[in-house]
Write a protein that binds this DNA or RNA. Structure first.
Length: 262
DNA sequence: ATGGTGGTCTTACCA
């Protein structure tokens, strides 16, 4: 007899794992999340709370630095073939963490913010996106099941922006950033989000000026799936609840449910 | 009303 099972994967920019550790643990447990990609942990590896996750029954890998950036993967399933650096990009900033979990090549990214169009940080973002494109292309050739998840710092379309006119041409929505996003789609990755009916469109709201209260948000956190994984995708949505918490991250987690054969 | 908030070995920088 065949039993249908599911895998819950998610991505969440926690903006300091130190501050958000209890929230993350509670959210992991209450949502039955199997695999969680974290961004902006802001922790050096020696300070990562390995034992706390292990005590809760999770495997964990991480790549961190002091004060800024930092990525991690928390998983109910064993984590294999871990990569923190890609040959295309020599970078002290810890923004990439790749691993194989339950037959899925999971690429966890914290894409540079880009500050504002025309700055050095914007140029770094475009360069970073281009280098990672080559890496993703290679991974798609090596693995049929690829998930690229994380804080992309790109809102792909105007429907992902609360006020497209106000944001027109700004960082996070500029044409060159969107072009980079759709290059990844052209490689064979797909964004399942708009294939499902959504209550919440946005994944990030600026802390300033009552951004969340006024729902002035953008959808910049994503889960992209290769074709074999897309066929297994039963749901994809943003869980706004953590953003309502006391002392929240400025990002809400994005989730996907994947059917797995048992 | 052209700002604001929040995080970090803080008084500057990042988002």
């Amino acid at each position: 007899m065949n039993e249908n099972k599911v895998l819950h994967i998610a991505s969440w920019n926690v903006n300091s794992l130190t501050v958000r550790l209890d929230q993350a643990l509670e959210w992991l447990a209450s949502t039955k999340t199997d695999v969680l990609a974290l961004q902006e942990t802001k922790l050096t590896d020696d300070k990562f709370p390995v034992n706390i996750f292990q005590e809760q029954g999770y495997h964990v890998v991480f790549s961190g630095q002091k004060s800024y950036n930092g990525v991690a993967i928390v998983s109910r399933y064993p984590i294999e073939e871990v990569t923190t650096d890609i040959p295309e990009l020599i970078d002290p900033q810890r923004r990439i963490l790749v691993a194989t979990i339950a037959g899925i090549r999971l690429i966890n990214l914290y894409v540079p913010n880009g500050a504002s169009v025309g700055t050095d940080k914007y140029e770094y973002k475009l360069m970073w996106l281009e280098k990672v494109t080559y890496y993703i292309q290679q991974q798609l050739n090596l693995y049929p099941k690829v998930a690229v998840v994380g804080d992309f710092n790109i809102a792909p379309e105007d429907q992902d922006v609360h006020d497209p006119e106000e944001w027109k041409g700004c960082v996070l929505v500029s044409p060159l950033e969107r072009e980079a996003f759709f290059k990844w789609i052209d490689l064979g990755l797909q964004d399942p989000f708009h294939q499902f009916t959504q209550d919440q469109i946005y994944s990030w709201w600026d802390y300033r000026a009552g951004g969340f209260r006024r729902n002035r948000g953008l959808r910049i956190d994503h889960i992209l799936l290769s074709e074999p994984l897309l066929k297994q995708c039963l749901a994809c949505y943003i869980d706004i609840e953590p953003r309502r918490s006391e002392r929240p991250s400025d990002h809400a987690p994005v989730r996907a449910t994947l059917a797995i054969a048992k």
